[in-house]
Write a protein that binds this DNA or RNA. Structure first.
Lengths: 123, 123
DNA sequence: AAAAATACGCAAATCATTTGCGAGTACACT
DNA sequence: AGTGTACTCGCAAATGATTTGCGTATTTTT
């Protein structure tokens, strides 16, 4: 099943990938259609094996749905995403829950700026 | 100029609006084309008068670019967005800047869950 | 092995947003 | 007022990521 190839790519990637990146990667090994990639991806997301994140660029990024809570620092120059595990939002969530009664189940957080590499190159 | 009509709608709205919502609103008063709305919106965003936010639903939401830092609680049931000003992310940003050298200039944060209203109706 | 269920490829559809182009309108300078 | 230049708009077509319909292949179930 081609699903395994797709899931493997996601499992072995240190950062989140677009459907096209996954397609390109899997294509090196087997014949596959882009729509199959999308279909499989949606499948994996439904099964909670993969997490889909929509970034400000309106493209979906897929990553392994591990429990480890991560967010990304996205460089506006090179567009690379650097994961970070610093996230104290749980505190804010509790506060919001307490003060508004809104039952928060998840959140998305995205930092934008310039990465050290690009900062260096700019000079 | 039709720009004024568009900007007025945004100024007078308590929450962020989609291009289509703005179009519908402005259409009640004058003749206007949807592409004009989009063009004007991009213009206002370029001039930093309006802020554009891409949500997980991949639709762009526009709001007045005031300095007041806001984030939204988005109900997965009714899809309404409730603004909140609780945001202690600045601390996290400083920490990241210090520890990674990444020069953060902005961030987007989106909470998902069920609003009190929908919670009540579900029972 | 036949039947039932899935997986897949391909081409066309979708939907928010953008863009090319041509016509209309405003502003500036003489 | 006249002419040139620059915006502003409307309209229709293009874009680009993602989805979907449908017919065929492949797997799973019995």
């Amino acid at each position: 099943m081609k699903k395994d190839y797709i899931f493997d790519v996601i499992k072995n990637s240190p950062n989140s990938l677009t459907a096209e990146e996954i397609y390109n990667n899997v294509s090196q090994n087997i014949n596959i259609n882009l729509s199959t990639v999308y279909r499989t991806l949606n499948n994996l997301v439904d099964k909670d094996l993969v997490t889909k994140i929509v970034r400000q660029d309106k493209i979906s990024y897929y990553e392994l749905a591990d429990n480890e809570h991560k967010h990304y620092l996205i460089c506006d120059k090179c567009n690379q995403a650097y994961p970070t595990d610093m996230c104290d939002i749980e505190k804010i969530e509790r506060k919001i829950k307490r003060e508004t009664g809104f039952n928060i189940t998840s959140h998305t957080l995205e930092f934008h700026g310039i990465c050290p590499e690009c900062l260096k190159n700019a000079k």
